Amino acid sequence: MSLERLEAVSELRSLVDDYAILTDEKKISEQMNLFTPDAKFTIYIGGQLISTITGTESLEKEFMTHVNEIKCYFTINGQHKVTVNGDTAEGIVFSQMKVIREEQGVDILSDYSIRYDDVYVRQNGAWLIQERAEYMIMIESRPLQS
């Protein structure tokens, strides 16, 4: 494996981890810097397409709407497999996201098992997410136990 490929793989792992960290910290405006301006983000639940968002302006609005409903995020990234081809790459990321929101005065914990299928591009020396398809594989919600 070439040094250039190893560097790209490391930088791409950092990119997906930065995405998760900024989500957990609710830093949505900063998170938009990880995407190309024309980024496409799709969400699937149970194999059904539920949302397609194009462009960071629309994506930021959508994420901000969601973040305002959430008390706390906690994300763990697992496997990250990438195929690098020059200044483009494709990747698969598996993540576990826990979310706490309040419903009728009760804290609800939702646990999401997610697979991301990504397309990355390197622009001006930095890797960015150009396309991200989020597949919610398993979702479990329950009242949070103190």
Rank of each mutant, 00 (worst) to 15 (best):
Q130D: 09
I100Q: 03
Q145M: 08
I70D: 11
E4H: 03
T36P: 01
L3H: 04
I139T: 01
Q145C: 03
K81R: 13
I70E: 14
S2E: 13
L49W: 00
D117H: 09
N124C: 02
E131Y: 10
Q96H: 14
K26N: 12
I50C: 12
M136G: 02
E30Y: 05
Y112M: 06
S110Y: 04
D107C: 05
M1C: 09
G91C: 14
R13H: 09
G47M: 10
I139V: 13
Y135T: 01
V84K: 02
Y44V: 01
T42Y: 02
I129R: 05
Q145K: 13
E57V: 06
I92W: 01
I139L: 07
G46L: 05
E102M: 07
V119I: 08
Q96T: 12
E103P: 02
S10H: 11
S51V: 07
F41A: 08
I50S: 00
Y112D: 00
Y44R: 01
I76F: 06
E69H: 13
A89Q: 06
D38W: 14
V93P: 07
T54S: 10
D18E: 15
S2I: 02
E11I: 06
T36N: 01
S141A: 15
T75N: 05
E69S: 14
I139A: 00
M97L: 14
L6I: 07
T88H: 05
K81M: 12
E131Q: 07
Y120Q: 06
Q96Y: 09
I21C: 06
R132A: 02
G46Q: 09
K26L: 07
E90W: 10
K61I: 02
N124P: 00
I114P: 04
R5G: 00
G46T: 03
S10N: 14
V93Q: 12
Q79T: 12
M1S: 10
E30S: 15
Q104Y: 04
I50V: 15
E102K: 07
K81E: 12
N77P: 00
R122M: 11
